[in-house]
Write a protein that binds this DNA or RNA. Structure first.
Lengths: 148, 148
DNA sequence: AAAAAATATCTCGAATTCAAATTAATTATA
DNA sequence: TATAATTAATTTGAATTCGAGATATTTTTT
């Protein structure tokens, strides 16, 4: 038996895991109905909201190994949702740039995506959500080694 | 632009995702040093703490498709950490049962596993953890369709 | 300017997971 | 009891992801 404090942390981890996985699984199913997998959606959404990105930075932002980036970007390029654009100043760099077709796709998916997430969270009041956001944000930053 | 409430839910989802992934990634690295992958660890831990389980029920408890169960149980059986035991009353059913060697493994890993999780959560006070546990538990149960 | 180190992308093979189809056994129904 | 429907486990093949190494380019150092 560990001590009481350690058990509490373990319990928090389990609760966090279950909630995340329950929500995520539900959201992923919705994304799947649009013919995208979660990673493809994440890349497309990143490009849509943050503009063109060097391939490498995509990995950092959505937690993906470099080999996987190439694969996902290939798939999205095949589907016509993004194109590769060479960087004019550094020939090692390639930008991923969302196409008009990709923009249309995101504009189709995103509202229902947001809406679904919102529906899954109606259990908590606005105040309760704020509380969780504030605390879990600190937890995440600290666990990922970032400072506040 | 969605409305303010919807944005709040989206923000909560993002915060939850990041925290979960940060903690999980860290914990998985530790498990890996013992020659297990996270799924193998989860199965072994389940058997250790909850006793023998029919293969099918393992899937329900740790969120795994049936094809994956067979694979993981095969691996753990090869490593000698569990054995398959036929059910005496229903010949369709096979139980997974942890071996002494498997018990030893869990008894070796689990304390440092718990300890690592605890360390990753020192950012929050005991009271704050309780708050998060209470709220996120409700969120998770509701999102997975279970009642309170 | 040449050599060394660092950076970005890609290729390849292995590990993991899933979905669909298969086999076997049990239970329900006619 | 025979047939159909259900349930449990497994097999197979495809999709996804990662890690290690290869290649090309740029930056830093000597």
């Amino acid at each position: 038996m560990g001590n009481e404090e350690t058990n509490q942390s373990l319990k928090l981890f389990i609760v966090l895991s279950r909630a995340y996985r329950a929500i995520n699984e539900n959201v992923n199913k919705l994304i799947h109905t649009y013919g995208l997998n979660p990673t493809e959606f994440a890349v497309l959404e990143l490009l849509y909201h943050k503009g063109d990105q060097p391939l490498q930075q995509i990995g950092g932002k959505i937690l993906l190994a470099s080999g996987s980036i190439t694969y996902v970007v290939d798939k999205l390029e095949e589907k016509g949702y993004l194109k590769r654009v060479a960087c004019p100043t550094d020939r090692r760099v390639t930008f991923a740039s969302i196409t008009d077709s990709g923009k249309e796709m995101i504009e189709t998916i995103f509202p229902s995506h947001e809406q679904r997430i919102h529906e899954l969270m109606t259990e908590l009041s606005a105040e309760e959500k704020d509380t969780v956001i504030q605390l879990v944000k600190r937890l995440g930053l600290s666990a990922s080694g970032k400072q506040l």
